[in-house]
């Protein structure tokens, strides 16, 4: 499987429940080694789409293929995907090793092979030392990691992760995101990543699809989608004693500024334009003003508008 090679292709997928159209004309492709963020407010059709793509339900219209296997062969597809559903239950009285060994056998491995594979995967997700503890004693973060290990049992070409970081503390989220990145970058699997944590999606995903009321309202590379909407930002980090002076200078130049409450000395500057030529000129002018005022600049970065803003503007009026 080569990087970028298409591992998932969806064509005009649709799903109707009675009179309600839960999904309309969903089409996209996912390349090997890429992470696709799947976004949308509650009821937008994300879970329906995931369940269709993972062969749990059949679409009323359209088709899809995974690694060249058509959706008319759900068994073939199940051999090539790994799925972490949003609400995944675990048998609390089994150990993680027993659990993974059992599921590993479902992929045609012998018991011994399956056990070895389980040990290897548990080690990869950081549960090597707890492989024989009862799952009932696991924290939520450990269960999520176990769930991810389970998705990798069949060496999948596409991995679906539905809200994998939900309910985890920041460290747990960070560790899980790193595991997800490794699945894509090192294993070369395509990853479909559903999350409500938009900053997380923005930082980890290559591509994004935003669904609203069953329809795609935005899709493409993350930077392309975020560039479509909202003002371009600059972020300036100054030596903390110079923060007040820097804010005064920038406001006098009629920039909209705000201090980052989490990073002392970091100031965000909104420019109100997306034109690359204009932003370059404005950035030079901004730097000149700060240097002229004697402000000690530590760092200076360009930032596109955040995915959250794009998401909110595209799904406006939808209760999530």
């Amino acid at each position: 499987m080569q990087a970028g090679e298409k591992v998932l292709t969806a064509t005009q997928l649709g799903m109707t429940y009675g009179q309600r159209q839960a999904l309309r004309g969903l089409s996209f492709t996912l390349g090997a080694g890429r992470i696709l963020g799947f976004l949308g407010p509650n009821g937008a059709g994300k879970t329906t789409a995931i369940r269709i793509l993972t062969t749990i339900i059949e679409p009323t219209t359209g088709s899809f293929s995974v690694a060249g296997i058509d959706s008319s062969d759900p068994h073939g597809i199940r051999q090539r995907i790994g799925v972490l559903p949003e609400s995944l239950g675990f048998p609390g009285r089994n150990t993680a090793l027993e659990y993974l060994t059992y599921f590993g056998e479902h992929y045609g491995r012998s018991r011994t092979e399956s056990r070895d594979r389980a040990l290897s995967l548990l080690s990869e997700v950081g549960l090597g030392g707890r492989h024989s503890s009862l799952i009932g004693s696991y924290s939520r973060g450990m269960r999520q990691r176990l769930g991810i290990a389970r998705t990798l049992l069949g060496d999948p070409q596409v991995v679906f992760l539905d809200e994998p970081t939900l309910g985890l503390d920041p460290r747990g989220q960070q560790e899980l995101v790193q595991i997800i990145q490794r699945i894509a970058r090192e294993r070369g699997a395509g990853v479909v990543f559903c999350s409500h944590q938009l900053a997380e999606v923005e930082s980890v995903c290559d591509d994004v699809i935003i669904l609203n009321e069953g329809q795609v309202v935005a899709d493409g590379r993350v930077e392309d989608v975020t560039a479509r909407k909202g003002a371009v930002r600059f972020s300036v980090v100054v030596d903390p004693p110079y923060v007040d002076e820097a804010v005064r200078v920038l406001q006098s130049e009629r920039f909209t500024v705000s201090r980052d409450p989490q990073v002392d000395g970091r100031i965000e500057v909104e420019l109100g334009t997306e034109d690359p030529d204009q932003t370059l000129e404005i950035r030079r002018e901004l730097l000149r003003s700060l240097l002229a005022a004697g402000v000690d600049i530590v760092a200076f970065t360009n930032e596109a508008s955040r995915l959250e803003e794009v998401f909110l503007s595209l799904t406006e009026g939808v209760a999530s």
């Binding site: 068994h75 199940r78 051999q79 090539r80 056998e105 479902h106 992929y107 045609g108 491995r109 594979r117 290897s120 990869e124 069949g154 060496d155 999948p156 490794r182 699945i183 090192e186 294993r187 070369g188």
Partner: peptide, 14 residues
């Protein structure tokens, strides 16, 4: 993380 295991083809016979 390396993909050292070959992906198993086919479902279990029984």
């Amino acid at each position: 993380m390396t993909n050292e295991h070959k992906r198993s083809e086919g479902r279990p016979k029984a």
